[in-house]
Structure formats: structure tokens, C-alpha cells
Amino acid sequence: MNFHKTTESDSHYDHLEKMSIQKLLSNINREDKTVPFAVEESLPQIEALVEQIVLKLKAGGRLFYIGAGTSGRLGIVDASECPPTFGVSHDLVVGIMAGGDSAIRKAVEFAEDDTEQGWKDLLDFQIDPQDVVIGIAASGTTPYVIGALEKCNAKGIITGCITCNQGSPLARTAQFPIEVVVGPEFVTGSSRMKAGTAQKLVLNMISTTAMIQLGRVEGNKMVDMQLSNHKLVERGIRMICEATGTDSFMAAKLLENHGSVRNAIKAFNHGNR
């Protein structure tokens, strides 16, 4: 099968070094505007994968993201934001990247080229068929990610992927591929740009939709968010006020006594039946 990496194709722009700051910013922004439309084309693929994720999470499974470089970092960011945003445990959504945690800040040379290490990294978490694994790779060719998904398939573990090239080896490996074709980057081959933006948008959609389906949002509010700073405590107080009609003093006391927005609202409603 012919496979062409559009993420590596020449930029539509040239002589970037001769452009003014204004022109550079304007052209980057022009390219960025195309990304949500590319994501829109992939909504049926995203829906198919999220349906599987919700089923597995409701049955006690976990969601894993696995990637290298920018793609790996984006998965780790999304996973790390689920506990504070939705109040879930840190082991429900897990981000893994080639080279380990040290690679989050500094690239580990050739880590992404190891076809066996991705599966080994998943085994550290006792991965099993209750779980879902999403491989993230803009190119769709990262050996670390493809090798991990191949092993998952062989072990009966549901696999998905997020890639930005059509018909890639990764998409052919994943049972539920998501292909968001964003085209050439502004700086040729710099897939941290449009491809990275596309991956971030898709990750937002996957985790947010799954958490809503799991009951972690009420109305449009993050009722299970962790109260880890003053801003979030103040937000929680406002949410309680809006939901119950009580004043901020009483809302603060409810929040202090019950530890979460959800429990504070329940306690107020129970006490005012």
C-alpha cells in the first residue's frame, strides 16, 4: 500500500526567514484555523473509539495513551489533567511516553525506535483486556507505538490511535484509528504545530466526553474537581451557590464540611427536603 506522509510535505510557505513578525504570525494563524475542520472530518472515527472507551471504563477498565516526543507529552498532559478536573483516580487515565518521565522535558535519543519497549512499559501497569490503549503519533510510523499496539491486539486489548497521515502503518494496526489529516506544516515537518494542535483537540474530546458519560459532570459543572487551590475553591463556592440558591458563606461551610461540590450540593438538598 502506498503511504505518503503529508506531515512531512513541503510547507505552502517559503522564505520564512524573510517574513516580518506580523506576516509570520498571520500565516501561522491562517494554517491553524484549518485544524478544527480536519478534526470535524474525523468525528465518526472519534465517536467509534470513545464508545469503546466508555464501555471499558464503566466496566472497571483503564485508558492508556502511549506515544513519543510531542505526541507522548500531549497524552501525558491529557491524562494528568483528568484527576484534578474530574476527581478520578490517577490510574484511570495513564500517559506513557518513549524514554520514560525524563523524556517529558528532554528528548531521549532513539527511544521511539524500540519496537519492544512500548509493550514493556505497558506491562509495568499490569495491562489487560479490560483496558484500552491509544497510540499517538503524528507520523503514524513510530516503532515504539506500533509495536505496543501490535502486542495489545495479540493480547485481546482494544487499541485506538491518533495520527495525522492517511493510511499509515499505525492506523492499519489500530482497531479504532483516528486520522486527522492537517496537511503540510508551516515549518516543514514540524508536527508539533498543526498536527500537535489536532492531537490536543482530539484528546480533549476523548477524555471530556468519556468523563461526562461516566457521570463526572452535572449540568455543565465539574462537580468532582479537586479543590487544590484558592481559585478552585472559589469556583466551587460559586457552583454551590448557583445550584442551591444559598449564600457564599453557607456554600463555603458546606464545601469545607463535605469536601467536594457534589457532596456539598447533595448535603444541602438532603437537609432542605
Rank of each mutant, 00 (worst) to 15 (best):
T7G: 06
K18G: 05
K18Q: 14
Q22D: 13
L24S: 12
V35F: 06
Q45Y: 09
Q45F: 10
Q45H: 08
A48H: 11
E51C: 12
E51M: 09
Q52T: 08
V54P: 06
K56S: 11
K56I: 02
G60L: 00
I66V: 06
A68V: 01
A68L: 00
T70Q: 01
L74C: 04
I76P: 03
I76W: 06
C82F: 08
P83M: 05
T85M: 05
S89T: 05
S89E: 13
H90I: 12
H90L: 11
D91T: 11
V94I: 15
G95L: 08
M97C: 05
M97I: 13
G99K: 00
G99C: 00
G100Q: 02
D101Y: 13
S102T: 15
K106A: 14
E109H: 00
Q117Y: 05
K120G: 05
L123K: 15
Q126D: 15
Q126T: 13
I127P: 12
D128L: 10
D128E: 14
V132W: 10
I134K: 02
I134N: 04
T142A: 07
G147K: 10
A148I: 05
K151A: 09
C152R: 02
N153M: 01
G156P: 01
C161D: 07
T163Q: 03
T163Y: 07
C164R: 03
N165D: 03
Q166P: 10
G167N: 02
P169A: 06
A174K: 07
P177K: 00
I178W: 02
V180I: 03
V187K: 12
V187W: 11
S190M: 08
G196Q: 03
T197G: 09
A198R: 06
Q199H: 08
L201R: 06
L201Q: 11
N204H: 08
G219M: 04
N220H: 12
N220Q: 13
M225I: 04
N229F: 00
K231S: 08
I237W: 02
I240W: 04
C241T: 14
T244H: 09
G245P: 05
T246K: 05
T246L: 12
M250L: 15
A251W: 01
E256S: 15
E256D: 15
N257W: 11
S260I: 03
V261I: 15
K266V: 14
K266F: 15
F268D: 09
R273V: 14
